[in-house]
Amino acid sequence: MYLLIGASAIVWFSLAYLNGLDLSKAKDFFRLIPKVVSIDLLLIAVFVKWGWEFKLFRGWLVPFPNLSGTWMGCIYSDWKNPQTGEKPPPIPVMLNVSQSFFHLSCVMRTGEMESRSFSEGFLIDPDRQLKEFAYSYTSKPLVSLSERSTPHDGSVVFRIIEKPKRKLVGRYWTERLTKGEIALEYHTSELLEELPCSIGEHPVTEDNSRR
């Protein structure tokens, strides 16, 4: 609000100077209101669309980091095969984050499932050195796996790491009573639509359908 008021004042005085108006006169003062409001709305629109991404505003005007893009990594599930007692190997995973100043959405994909967030939020508290984001999701496995892997809901909490490398490290749990850890690294600013073959090709097994 202070920034907006300051910008409005600058615009007001600038327009008055360019148009040779005397702001001490009520008529000249109020005739500028429509122009000032229009410029303010334009500045807000530019900030919300692009400006918030600049590091210049991080920390004091924009409290959260920009996570937009594709993140790659692995899921480490604590589920154990009831027949062998062994845990499944790490599951390659891709997370797409679409973020704007007011909105955040996440889509996670493995070779067997796709999950989409329905509730998201940041947990930012510099005084407590807390920098996390969390979301709840609905997971839909491939139709071919419907007999042994049903759609379900779950939640994820990620710790945001920006130095020395951009990483997301967190934990998840589901209503199927499975849980585990997820480790991701920033891959690209593009939102990829499927896992690259080099990391996405893995056999369809009962183990990694438990996520």
Rank of each mutant, 00 (worst) to 15 (best):
N81P: 05
Y172Q: 00
S146I: 05
I5L: 12
L177A: 10
C197I: 13
K131S: 15
T110V: 07
C197Y: 11
S144H: 09
T84I: 04
I161A: 10
R109N: 02
F57M: 05
G51V: 07
P164G: 02
T205S: 08
L32G: 00
S14H: 10
I182D: 01
V143E: 11
E53I: 08
K35S: 09
R176A: 06
V156A: 04
S198T: 11
E120R: 03
K163S: 12
T205C: 05
E193G: 14
I199W: 02
F133E: 01
L56P: 00
W173D: 06
L184K: 10
E112P: 00
S189K: 15
D125V: 02
T174G: 02
R171M: 13
K25E: 14
L3M: 06
S8G: 08
D127S: 15
P88F: 00
A9W: 06
S146A: 15
V143A: 13
I44V: 11
T178Q: 14
R148A: 11
P141A: 06
V48Q: 11
S189M: 04
K131G: 07
L42D: 15
I33H: 06
F158D: 03
L21K: 08
S77Y: 00
T174Q: 01
W71K: 07
M94C: 00
L145T: 06
V62R: 02
P126F: 03
I91G: 01
S119N: 13
R171F: 11
D153R: 13
